[in-house]
């Protein structure tokens, strides 16, 4: 009778510690940039600009 006990051996993966993406080469915003992103007056302008951008895209893509 054939021995079937050793025919289904599979290799379980070996789990290593996680490797995180190195984002150090990415540009870091300056304090001035971060301030601009939170400046209410400036952001009101950006709010209008983004809405205009969206409307333009919707009109351009309308069929």
């Amino acid at each position: 009778m054939p021995d079937t006990t050793a025919t289904t051996a599979t290799t379980a993966p070996v789990y290593a510690a996680p490797v995180f993406l190195d984002t150090a080469p990415a540009p870091l915003p300056t304090p001035q940039t971060l301030s601009r992103r939170r400046n209410v007056v400036r952001q009101l302008g950006r709010f209008v600009a983004f809405n205009v951008k969206m409307i333009g895209m919707i009109l351009h893509g309308a069929h």
Partner: peptide, 9 residues
């Protein structure tokens, strides 16, 4: 673009 305006949108 990233900023406060995006949250308002």
């Amino acid at each position: 673009e990233i900023g406060l305006a995006g949250h308002w949108v």
